[in-house]
Design a protein around this nucleic acid. Structure first.
Lengths: 334, 334
DNA sequence: TTGAAAGCGCTACCAA
DNA sequence: TTGGTAGCGCTTTCAA
């Protein structure tokens, strides 16, 4: 149960902790330690199954080689993908990742932020609830590197990587219009997020640009997304007579499709749909669902690059820490 | 940038680190510290925005209040759910969770195990590749609490929580048989996992029990799951003439359904299907897909309970550290 | 009721 | 080429 420490190895080889430490950290040659001494130390360390106590090292160096990843939830396949992507990249860089989920609760987010800060993480990657500017700003001001991804605070000068939500919504509408749809509806969430608002504005403007006076915009409660969305679909189709619907997120699309199938409508001929955000099943559904795909790997990679720049303090004046990536259409059958 | 430390607070209030430490850890009354002194310390700590350095505390106490969660991958919604469940429970218990994904690679798993051990985690929750008994045993023997979930090593006496895969497969077959299916096929993976083997044996036995001589068992390469599965579906239906298929995992079912829909078969009348493992879209598909659901929350909760028992050293002789939970059928339209 | 001081295990500066 | 030693910031025993 007692772990082997640097000290024990030092005693074993009758050398100082210093020497052992240097060798075990690969700095043997750097400090011109005798090759024989080095091999000796290495072999003893292996024989004794030495595992350095990272906590001690971290306390000493002030760096923990650990980053925090905060997302709203993991069941959302989008964030699952993000998490997976990021974990892979970071693990290659030698970093650990601490996971936190907020469930859109600013209080939980604040707690996570504080705990991670106390935990001495080297940086934070966060898809924020967007209701914690103060805490995030404080953390950033305290010198803890942070990158906001997916959701950001447009009013603050914090590093971020987001997709172009406005453009994305426009692309979706354009697809429907080009497919000959005349009366397009939209179903979105009542979340107070820039990303969400941009999508809604993108939709409204796209509609106004092409087909005047069509404001079939339905906002549903994110806590009752399923039932509210089903009702919105019904109203849009039955009352408004839409022939196309833009869903603001992949899961709204999922709920909506289920409802449409239960209704007596000729889907997708009478009513076509498109989704902001792809889902693994969209290409399995019949008809296959057309979606706007968010470049997950790019978002993950760029967010991490941006964080690393901060950590390595390579922020020369030219490096911009704001990035908007363009989503692309995956045109399928709807 | 310089963080406030215990020392600074001590100086500020002109008391010792000891006193400050006790008060800030809620042990003020326990040590009979003057109430006035306590309120003073608390207010100063708040004013100075004191955040204890957990690394230092951890080094001192030997506990990190951090647990490691290792899963094969996060894009699998099953593990996404597990991760989410566990993170929620653990966060309430005051633990952090370090995430690691193996992608079924024993080498990566070994690395993760070693890193997490060095990182001084207080415990490990792992859905193993099942090719690392040695390392896992070593870690467990070293006194680091560990719980295997979802996948375990039947030959070793390590704590685990798994579902009854054998029974699950039997339930699936039984459902198909009761629905009048006579010629049932099975599509599984070539993974060397007990869970997988149990499902296959469960299938074979269930078939033998009810309908003799039907061994339409196809094993596909997990690295080419999609294309192999599609081919298996084709062979099963065209060559073997099956009228029912059991899919070993939810994603095999997803691939299979896509293929079936592209084929000229009367689905689900001519061929019905069932899936081992549920998926959010199974109730959205038309027809809705019948699946065996694994009790995620129970698995998460029980695994954590089991880990906590070890951490708190409450292992009296009566507490068994092996648990097999029963999966339940979600009968839908197929 | 409060404080001094010895660690926890490692790193890194300064000497030798 | 190698070692002594002073921290890193906190906890905790023993004293006062």
């Amino acid at each position: 149960m007692k772990r082997v420490s640097l000290d024990m190895i030092a005693k074993e080889v009758k050398l100082s902790k210093t020497t052992v430490s240097m060798v075990l950290n690969g700095k043997g040659d750097l400090h011109k330690i005798n090759p024989d001494t080095q091999t000796l130390i290495l072999s003893v360390a292996k024989r004794l199954k030495f595992r350095p106590n990272m906590i001690a090292r971290n306390l000493s160096t002030g760096s923990s080689m650990t980053l925090a990843l905060i997302v709203p939830r993991m069941i959302d396949t989008y964030y699952g993908l993000i998490a997976e992507s990021m974990e892979q990249i970071l693990s290659k860089l030698g970093y650990q990742v601490l996971l936190g989920t907020t469930h859109e609760d600013p209080v939980k987010e604040k707690e996570l932020l504080l705990t991670f800060e106390a935990q001495q993480v080297d940086g934070i990657l966060i898809a924020s609830t967007q209701h914690n500017l103060e805490d995030i700003k404080a953390i950033s001001d305290a010198g803890l590197p942070i990158v906001l991804f997916d959701r950001h605070y447009p009013e603050a000068d914090l590093p971020y990587v987001v997709v172009d939500n406005y453009l994305g919504a426009q692309k979706l509408v354009r697809h429907l219009i080009e497919a000959g749809r005349k009366n397009i509806g939209y179903i979105g969430l009542n979340l107070d997020l820039t990303a969400i608002k941009d999508r809604q504005i993108g939709f409204e403007n796209a509609i106004e640009d092409h087909v005047k006076d069509q404001h079939n915009l339905k906002i549903v409660d994110h806590k009752n997304a399923k039932s509210d969305c089903r009702q919105a679909v019904e109203e849009l189709i039955l009352d408004q007579g839409v022939d196309g619907i833009v869903f603001e997120t992949h899961y709204l699309a999922l709920f909506g499709i289920a409802k449409i199938r239960e209704m007596d409508v000729d889907y997708p001929n009478a009513v076509s749909i498109v989704s902001f955000g792809d889902h693994e099943v969209f290409s399995i559904f019949r008809p296959e669902v057309t979606a706007l795909v968010q470049p997950v790997e790019k978002i993950a990679q760029n967010s991490i690059d941006m964080l690393m720049k901060q950590i390595e303090n390579k922020l020369n004046s030219t490096s911009k820490l704001h990035e908007v990536v363009e989503p692309s259409m995956e045109v399928r059958s709807t």
